[in-house]
Nucleic acid binder design. Structure first.
Lengths: 349, 349
DNA sequence: TCCGGATTGGGAACCGGTTTCCACCGTGTT
DNA sequence: AACACGGTGGAAACCGGTTCCCAATCCGGA
């Protein structure tokens, strides 16, 4: 066994050149495809490439200016069904466009987020997509604004999906879906079936997604001249456990209501369990609705009436707009529509 | 505005050097941290870095030999709950170890898979993790073997998660979970509750995951001296629709059974819908069990008895073993245990 | 047969870093 | 006062590619 074949680990363009009896430039040109090369030379080079099983180092190409641009996707937890669908949309569109897609979950830790954005800056990523609601604090705006500026000055772009916008002038693309409108339509549907005491299982009070949905709940009431009992507005987070706990406690307190609207399908799932545990029939005794239209919404029993959010489309759109813009484009704001999907969990009263 | 500040897009190490009045080598040394540099110089350099908001280009560093190793994760569809959990495990462990994690979904298309592995070879990824069952054909083995060899010769390693192994000698790490054992335990549980005609909703006949679960089904019967009616073995795929369709047709054909074991929780969800549609009570009239223990299994009504698979742990383990080995390590095979989780969907007969 | 333009392919510079090698400096020793 | 030595930092080579620039060759036409 010669030394040559022993260090088979990685062959360089110069190895290929030597084997084909040409210069490295020629190999590069053959592989590049545009520069005219005689077919005899091309054949020899291609054979050498095949024999050595040569693949050009993408990092070296990137340094030399021929980039395979990368796209970064940051979310809290890929395990959540709606996040997973956005991730899917992002990934599909990115590979369709020939980009690599790197993913990072932060577990909601801001430090992870900052660290990761820094890495993506070093990688010269084409765009960084930040996903998932967040509290809209001044601190959030400042921090995110700084990320946007740094990314922009490094030639890439920040995209915010379902996150609070930063105010005018930030080099950022914001894509949201209509939380308030969807909740409005959903609650209007519930009210139109005759319910008057509708329990709302909301999220964290400073979380913009939760706020939007809560605003929709209130607006739908007021549009009918109703003022909801403040005692019917409960706050937790977007987990199943939260829905379960909130509803069990409400039941124990003897709170009166004929319908429950959950800020999330997950919350609705937890609420449904609590309802079943209490021996209540859904929708016979209490109606229930969710939000997000995750695939499992239709497997619950009864199948859950909810609001459909085009998560996958959101992801696709995020990469399309991110890549279509130059870093200098100022802020841009898109709003995707949502719609109610009526299933079996809301009954007339 | 000078030309200097106009092309603010990306500053190089030489820009920093010029601004600090030192050479590029010195900047590199300050940032690298090990080489002795006087504190005065260090301060000047750090100030220049801050003022220019400089971040070293990770690709250039990689070319120079200081790599931020990348890990690739290939699956069929991130949207499936069990895949999502594996992805989560992989991602968490990878970032914990300081690796970037790029993800690709193939939609089950082999061409995408090959293309992507090629890209990862070009990226000099530290490891490529292939996830999800597959048909175990000679063509599969040959193709995958070739990928493993190419990857190994490029210094990285192929990891197969829940996929058919390749036979001895392939430079590959295989991590599986115990499909047969889990199904055996689950079906044994069902049989012990007095059921004798247990419908099995299986997957594609050449899919190894499906085969393993089916073997467990058969073995559990035979261990009790029972020989299941072949008419009770149905084949479809691992989707909810498949479960729905299969069960509806079985019911229409008048097939007799008192329990249903689905090869997947998703399949079970579809089957449950079909059962409900037929006015059957679960578990009163028919018992039902699934496999995978996806989070929603406990939100079904009744909560689904199923087999827990440690998907997240699987992902973590995949990256740990992938990174722990040198490319020369020959084949390695790990098997993770599974266990039945009893909930409310199986009743005594 | 000789000339000129089109083909073809090599050499070298470059991309943005790291690292080796070496010169220079100030200092302590004898 | 000469010398050896450790601490600093610059020049240059290198990583693995691409591309500019230019020379050699081939071809057809006069």
């Amino acid at each position: 066994m010669t030394r040559k074949s022993a260090d088979a680990s990685r062959s360089t363009i110069r190895d290929v050149a030597a084997r084909a009896g040409v210069s490295a430039s020629t190999v590069s040109r053959v592989l590049g495809g545009v520069y005219p090369v005689s077919s005899a030379t091309r054949t020899r080079v291609m054979r050498a490439v095949r024999e050595l099983d040569y693949v050009a180092d993408a990092r070296a190409k990137a340094v030399a200016g021929v980039a395979t641009p990368t796209l970064a996707f940051v979310l809290e937890d890929i395990t959540g069904p709606s996040f997973a669908h956005m991730a899917h949309g992002v990934e599909r569109e990115a590979t369709r466009l020939g980009h690599l897609c790197v993913v990072c979950s932060t577990d909601g830790d801001v430090r992870h987020e900052l660290e990761f954005v820094e890495m993506m800056r070093a990688q010269r990523a084409a765009a960084v997509i930040l996903v998932g609601g967040s509290a809209d604090t001044p601190e959030y705006r400042e921090r995110t604004r700084r990320m946007a500026d740094q990314l922009a000055s490094a030639g890439s772009r920040l995209v915010l999906c379902g996150r609070p916008p930063l105010g005018p002038g930030a080099p950022v693309t914001v894509i949201e879906y209509d939380n308030e409108g969807g909740a409005y339509a959903l609650v209007a549907h519930v009210l139109s079936r005759g319910h008057r005491r509708v329990l709302f299982l909301g999220g964290k009070p400073d979380h913009t997604t939760a706020q939007g949905r809560e605003r929709g709940y209130l607006a739908a009431h007021r549009a009918r001249g109703l003022e909801p009992d403040p005692a019917l507005l409960l706050h937790g987070d977007f987990t199943r456990d939260s829905g379960h706990r909130l509803l069990r406690e409400a039941l124990k307190r003897g709170l009166e209501f004929t319908a429950v609207v959950a800020a999330t399908d997950m919350v609705a799932a937890g609420a449904l369990t609590a309802l079943h545990e209490a021996g209540l029939d859904v929708p016979g005794d209490v109606s229930l609705a969710g939000y997000d239209d995750i695939p499992f919404a239709r497997d619950l029993h009864p199948a859950l009436t909810t609001v459909h959010v085009p998560y996958e489309e959101l992801g696709r759109l995020a990469v399309r707009t991110a890549l279509g813009r130059t870093p200098e484009t100022p802020d841009e704001h898109l709003l995707l529509g949502t719609h109610v999907v009526v299933r079996d969990s809301v009954a007339a009263r």
